[in-house]
Amino acid sequence: MTLIKKHDATGDAPREFRHQSRDRAGLLCQLEADAPEQRRWAALDLAAFSDAADALCDRLEQETQTPVREAILTSLIQIGGNPVVCGLMPLLRSEDAALRNQVIEALQQLPEAVSPYIERMLADDDADYRIFAINVLANLRHPQAPAWLQDVIERDDNINACAAAVDGLAEIGTPEAIPALTALPERFADDPFMQFCTQTAIRRIQGHGA
């Protein structure tokens, strides 16, 4: 029997990075450290400081390491509030697809804080940006989400923005959206995909086959 029982379950003595203390200033400094593991620990510990949101968002924009990015976003979700949302929204324009999608997931976790900005996001000139806003909405626990998605299919002239909104409405749409869904394919020259997804959404909303 070589399985050994060790009375200290917690591993060897902590060999943490103690170059800086775990106060706010020390953590902010450590957030810029060279070693990704140090930056990750600093990001996690900064969840305790609500005024660290700006520094975390700034770091996120430059950060390339997934574990550090995830730690930053985990802390930002815990901090929450409008400053976090304002810091995250511009990152939806990032060239980095992984970062954009991590940010979308984080925003989905902040329904109250994100709600005041939705209308502005949906009115943006850049269709890609609007689609990301719709992706946030489609998985947002906010009572107004169905109405916002319905606005998209009534107003947006980008076919992919509308298709993304229809996909969301298939899950959370209410019967009020049915006229707009019915009218939608016509606006896009009866594109076969648009026909298919609007019909699917209508059936899902009605709860029975047409």
């Binding site: 697809a97 992984a98 954009r100 999608n101 997931e105 689609i131 990301f132």
Partner: peptide, 11 residues
């Protein structure tokens, strides 16, 4: 697809 949660299409 490209834009997806947890892992994007490029990755």
């Amino acid at each position: 697809d490209i834009n997806m949660p947890k892992m994007d299409g490029y990755t």
